[in-house]
Design a protein around this nucleic acid. Structure first.
Lengths: 259, 259
DNA sequence: CGTGCCAGGTGCCGT
DNA sequence: ACGGCACTTGGCACG
């Protein structure tokens, strides 16, 4: 087996490296380049990085990222590019990646190349993310009693013109209830966001709705703001419910058996 | 030259791969692993990724990232880890990366390994970022006339208890001026942020300050909100000034010669 | 297109 | 540690 057609090059000539890179880009292969380089970026911002050893990755969709030996994030990058080109200038390999909208230019000058890997990777794997905000929103949509007895949810992601409120419902007294959901600790901003919806809803309908902020926890500033703006909150850590569900029941029960 | 001690392995045994990986982690080398794997993550969220070809990178600081063949962002990651360990389970290479605070676990099962690269990279390069928000803030701090004639800036990043206002100054009539700076198009949120500071400042001092939002452009919603809240704005694209400066003067002049 | 908002956001800096 | 916020934020969804 030719190892998934992954090719490794070292000690090639600069011209060969340039050719290898440009070929890979055309063929939409993945490319990993390890070497000593300096990087200039100009676009929305502007940056300059002097010489050092880095790992440069070009993916099949034309995204580029340059990694230093430390740090989770790339030091320079380009999410999408319209043009990537490698060429030899002054006996150095220069790689230019240009992005349109916003117009941004990434220029990498390699003073040394230690290693070039290229090849086609096939990835048809399915990625599923759980416990994101929409997950929680949907859970409440189906189980409104988690918030309050007698609550009826009547709308999800309702656009009010100033953004969409997560959930709209009616309580057991017939009063409208706007719900904003946060999957992590809710800040003052979250309270203000909810207030924005409440204000707009009142203006649109002429009726004052209740506003409930739902989150696993709240900053003191958030609680303060909620009180000041006459808004309510419910502490609800869906993550904990999720773990409980997984641990105790093996997923074979309804959520209502948890409490 | 031994190519910066970068080592490449392919067709090794699973036990050898595990050993190579664990060695690299102890020696704090950089490690690039290309192969077919599935990934499970649990922590703040929870995700599952089925089999496919990916590039996994472990850096010397223990950060881990798993890249699919497309997309700028890693599909799974771990910014810092307290423990990374590779071992062979059921004739498969399993890599576990654990992070404390928040407690998160990343589990990668390799069904095939195409390539392993490891080695020590040295990067003492200097990284400088220009045109970020603090850059613009400092520029206005030194050149307050960019905002208004007769303006005196007297404070920078002043914490008002609800967050820090970018700049505080006094206009030529002796009235306090709060300035909020945005490096990109200012939204309604930016206007609200400024209003928050203006409100708090008035409460703290008993005097109503002016509020000016400075940005290269404004959304219509931002302009609407500014008007409603009796706030001012200045269109100021420092990026353009920067480009002009670079293009026309070669950096040999003061900013005031630009206008 | 812009506008709004979530993200396992991350990172920095402050109290 | 919590809190507030910028980021070349990136990414998606929707009018």
């Amino acid at each position: 087996m030719v190892n998934k057609l992954l090719e490794v090059f070292r000690n090639s000539s600069l011209d060969d490296y340039a050719k290898l890179i440009n070929e890979s880009i055309v063929k939409r292969e993945i490319l990993v380049l390890i070497g000593k380089c300096s990087v200039d970026y100009t676009g929305r911002g502007e940056s300059r990085l002097t010489d050092g050893d880095r790992v440069l990755i070009i993916k099949s969709d034309g995204s580029v990222q340059i990694h230093r030996p430390e740090g989770y994030k790339p030091v320079n990058w380009q999410p999408q590019t319209s043009v990537i080109e490698a060429r030899v200038v002054d006996n150095k390999l220069v790689l230019t990646a240009i992005r349109d909208k916003p117009r941004e230019i990434l220029n990498v000058v390699f003073n040394e190349i230690y290693l070039l890997i290229r090849g086609r990777l096939t990835d048809n794997g399915e990625f599923v993310m759980y416990l994101n905000e929409s997950d929680i929103r949907d859970l409440i949509y189906v189980n409104p009693w988690l918030i309050e007895d007698g609550l009826h949810i009547i709308g999800k992601e309702k656009d009010l013109g100033v953004g969409a409120v997560d959930l709209i419902g009616v309580d057991n007294k017939g009063k409208a209830v706007l719900i904003e959901v946060k999957r992590i600790t809710a800040s003052r901003e979250a309270a203000l966001q909810l207030y924005k919806y409440v204000e707009k809803y009142a203006k649109l309908t002429g009726a004052q709705p209740r506003g409930i902020l739902v989150a696993p926890s709240f900053t003191t500033q958030a609680l303060d703001t909620l009180k000041r703006l006459n808004l309510e909150y419910r502490e609800l850590d869906l993550k904990k419910l999720w773990l409980l569900k997984k641990r105790n029941m093996g997923g074979k029960c309804g959520l209502d058996q948890l409490l």
